[in-house]
Design a protein around this nucleic acid. Structure first.
Lengths: 327, 327
DNA sequence: CTGAAAGCGCTAACAT
DNA sequence: ATGTTAGCGCTTTCAG
């Protein structure tokens, strides 16, 4: 900046003002132009770090997550990145592999970096306990809840999602709808089934406990559960699988039984794991876990004019229609 | 720091020295202890930004990628994050959605942030052209090549991967091995097939052009190609699919033909998209695209004592053995 | 309308 | 062995 001040014959402050486009300061247009020209010629590039120091604003937001190989982490980073970029904020990401020691270290490092907020996200919808440092900076939880329950939290609307999946099947004319659920200790299992029951009740369909099985969240489990369901005396004509992996297994069972999807049995999944859902044959209609939206929502919360008291935001799970529902 | 200097009755420099653990400066142990104690009591937390300004080292590394929903971006970020953390570096991530304008903007922003290096990674192994700013900072390409070819580049060893997949099948006793390849304009298609042919040749198996088909990189394509292959007069007993999605489709075709995997036909995939490979039934043996390793390798290159002239590093693609190969 | 000057929080010669 | 001092690159108040 000194260089360009000298080159232009003005002071550093003037340079600062015009480069920051401060129209509130009266500076003749010709001067402004000269400054800008000099800046360009000299290849001036502002030093964000120095600006941050002077302004006491880093424009940095941290995101700590138990990054694993599922696309979930990628999606939430993507959503957050997008929203952050729109606000001229940058994302500092640190993965913890779920190690609590690293979580604490991550928070400490981010605080030293003077991030303006931290997003703490997990793959699985679970209960977590944050390091004390989390209270020293705006922190929002994504896809998990705090034991103490005193953090702003972004959660997917699992129950509405379960209902949506079920309604989709009902609307297609199905009444005998089987559900293959996750193991009950997975937090998402309960609300997804609650949604299923609610949709059934709303449609005036009696709930039949024989029609719900647990598939252990794996393709193998989905296969077994679907086989059982299909072996019932009056088998379901539609299956709501509480995740796409189980739906993948269910596909196998249906096909093995000589049945067609969606001709003989319709299937709806949950999670929208693109790689599975989009490429299963036929492509799987499923309820999406809106990770990108949650990531963006977290940024919005963090960047809000005033970061308010703890609140819970429930993000809807949209239906992604593909080709596995029919009739 | 001033506070702790006053509290301890020493100067700021002394505080700086002990807090930075500079043993080369002679300071009596008791003084050191007092300083550290005061720091703790006052809840002192170093300001990384100020340190960066003073030291002219930000410890920041940028990563720009066309983040999409595949787990690839997540894996490379994970690998890079890991390696960066080990070196006390932080990752600034920006996604571009493949938009060239944003790529240029991303580089500019990262340079303003004074990152010490930039990783440019793409989902698909492709040819890219980087903005001019890329020359102003150590930059390494991951999973893509530059038109000009003058950047340090990290690439997977696709050819060795193709050979590895094929050898795996050969070693299991197969001689009639079909290959379902990607569309030829996908950069990975050529080397994967070259590897296939090389492995065949090495094993003394004649190459039979009727045994290789193109599956368009989709499950549907894999299904069609597998059906054709299985309909040959002397059908293959093993299938090497150039990606896991096509393997997924191939599974369907094999099962539909009343054949078993791996009893009647063995299958090997490529990419190791965990979500597919690990949950297919039977789980798919596949060659992994080592994104995390590539990310880590990129960090290593960037952090090397002296960032050398452009070089290409080829990272091996390891075999992930699961349950689809037999005989 | 423009410039001087005082920081932002920290490091590192250079003196003492 | 410890303190003084001069920055790092930029913003911003306050005079002029």
């Amino acid at each position: 900046m000194d260089d360009i001040a000298h080159a232009t014959g003005v002071s550093r402050s003037t340079v600062s003002f015009v480069l920051n486009g401060r129209e509130d300061i009266q500076i003749p247009a010709p001067t402004r132009d000269r400054v800008r020209a000099a800046a360009r010629e000299l290849g001036y590039r502002p030093h964000a770090g120095a600006q941050a120091l002077a302004k006491a604003r880093t424009d940095l937001i941290g995101i700590v997550t138990d990054i694993v190989a599922t696309p979930f982490a990628g999606e939430i980073i993507r959503g957050a990145q997008h929203a952050a970029w729109a606000r001229d904020k940058f994302l500092l990401v640190v993965g913890t592999d779920g190690d609590p020691t690293r979580v604490a270290a991550a928070f400490e490092m981010l605080l030293q970096r003077r991030v303006e907020g931290i997003i703490f996200a997990t793959q699985a919808n679970e209960s977590v306990t944050l390091p004390a440092a989390a209270r020293e900076v705006p922190t929002v939880l994504v896809h998990c809840v705090s034991d103490a329950g005193d953090f702003t939290t972004i959660l997917p609307d699992e129950e509405a999602g379960g209902a949506l999946a079920t309604e989709t099947l009902i609307r297609a004319g199905h009444r005998r709808i089987g559900m293959i659920n996750l193991d009950p200790w997975l937090r998402a299992a309960i609300p997804r089934e609650t949604g299923y029951r609610r949709a059934l009740a709303t449609a005036g369909v009696a709930f039949n406990p024989r029609l719900v099985r647990v598939g252990h969240a794996t393709a193998e489990g989905g296969y077994e559960a679907a086989r059982e369901l299909l072996a019932e005396v009056d088998p379901p004509t539609a299956l709501f699988c509480a995740n796409d992996r189980m739906a993948m297994g269910a596909y196998d069972a249906v096909k093995e039984a000589g049945l067609r999807i969606p001709g003989d049995v319709s299937v709806v999944g949950f999670d929208n794991q693109e790689i599975i859902a989009a490429f299963l044959r036929p492509a799987l209609t499923t309820v999406a876990l809106p990770f990108d939206t949650m990531g963006a929502t977290a940024i919005d919360a963090l960047c809000a004019p005033s970061f308010g008291p703890p609140a819970v935001t429930i993000v809807p799970c949209p239906l992604v229609e593909r080709a596995s529902v029919g009739r």
